[in-house]
Each structure stands twice: as C-alpha cells, then as structure tokens.
Design a protein around this nucleic acid. Structure first.
Lengths: 112, 112
DNA sequence: CCGAATCCAACATGATACTG
DNA sequence: CAGTATCATGTTGGATTCGG
C-alpha cells in the first residue's frame, strides 16, 4: 500500500526550498553571483558592476555569501589593500541553477 | 574576435533572475506551489496545510500567483462557496525547478 | 466557507558620512 | 581601497475584524 500522502503541514522554516530561495532571492544576490561566475572580482569592481548598490548592502551580501560557503574572501595585505572575492564550487553549482531560472523566467514574462 | 565581456552594469530590475527569485522567494510561495503540485486544492485545504499562515497572506500569494499565470482560480457558486486553485503548465514547470533547488539546498546545508 | 479591510511589526535595503 | 557606523525608509508579512 502506497501511503497516499496528504502532505503533512510544514512551515517555511522547515522547507529547504524556502530557506534557499529567501537567501538567494535577496535583492542583489543573484547579480553578485552572476558577476562572480565571470571570475575573481575585487570589491570595487563589483561595486562598479552593480549600479546603485550601497557599500553597506554589498558588504552585507558578500558576508552572507561567505558565511554560507558560496564565496571566498581573500585579503592581500598590500597598500592600498586589495580584497578579492571568488565563487566556491557550490557557488558555481548554484550559478547553473540560476541559468535554469533565467530560462524559465524569460518564457514566463514573454507569455504575459 | 570574441568580445570578452566585462559584463556591463545591470540593475536588479533589469535582471530576469532577480525578478523571478524575488517573486518566487516570497515567504510562503514555494510551499503553496509545492502543495498544488499534488493536485487541485481548496482555499481551506491550503490553509490547513500551511500551519501559521494568515488568511491575508494566503490570499495575497494566491492572487499574485494567479496574476502571473502560475495558478488558476475556479469559483463554484454553491452554498457554501467552494473555490479551487490549480497550477497552470507554467506553474508545473516552475515546480520542476524547485526540485533542483531542493536538491542543491540539501547538499548545501549538509555541508555546513 | 472564502476572503476583503485595516492596522501594525519586522526586516531588508538605502543614503550618507567616516575610518584603517 | 575597502569597508563600518548611523540613521531613515519601504516593502512584506501578520493579527484581527468584518462581509458575501
């Protein structure tokens, strides 16, 4: 007998998809990842590439991405200082999913 | 000559991935879609299946999903009224992407 | 039973100025 | 250059109440 699931109640906090999407869906996060797919980037390069972002928001996003293991942060103790950000393998894996999202999103909006 | 792109500045509003993720990443949206993958559901069924959701939030999410063509809403003019929600084909397509997100998210969190 | 209306709280984001 | 500190704001979600 297959237990035909009336899927039991589940909260957003218990749902891995929700956790993932609320994290990745933060306003600037997909664009940060997208730029890093292109290769290692400095803080200032990202800032230029993200028109209108505030330094605080960029720092927040990069810290969050680093904490969650999607981005590495490397400090070169020079003068002037140089800090570089790069995607981890898991960050790249996410980038591939974002491609799927992009394709789906384009069809979706075209059909409006 | 391949024009090696230093990808030109782009805002979140211009990015289809951002638009899609901020929409789908709304707190209860993934769970609503997930429950509808199982088949047609009544408002009250969804409410039971989503512990803690407020009627306003559920109505908001369902309206947004309907407006964007991911869900259909059918009113059966009975007494008491019966209202049923179902995914459209595009809604189901999104569901498949959410599966990928789930798989990625599980690895991601396991690796913490 | 389904859901609209109102009001409010929480959080993410933003502007701006300043520092190691 | 690469941020932090501080303050202001806007959008999202929730509690509650009421109507068809």
């Amino acid at each position: 007998m297959e237990t035909d699931q009336a899927p039991r109640p589940i909260t957003p906090e218990e749902c891995v998809v929700t956790r993932t999407l609320t994290f990745v869906g933060s306003r600037w996060t997909p664009l940060v990842i997208w730029h890093l797919l292109d290769g290692v980037k400095r803080y200032g390069e990202l800032r230029q590439a993200l028109p209108g972002i505030s330094p605080k928001t960029l720092a927040d996003r990069l810290q969050a991405l680093e904490e969650r293991g999607l981005v590495t942060r490397t400090v070169h103790p020079e003068k002037p200082p140089r800090v570089e950000y790069a995607l981890t393998p898991r960050g790249f894996a996410l980038g591939r999913i974002l491609d799927d999202v992009a394709r789906w999103g384009e069809e979706w909006e075209d059909a409006d």
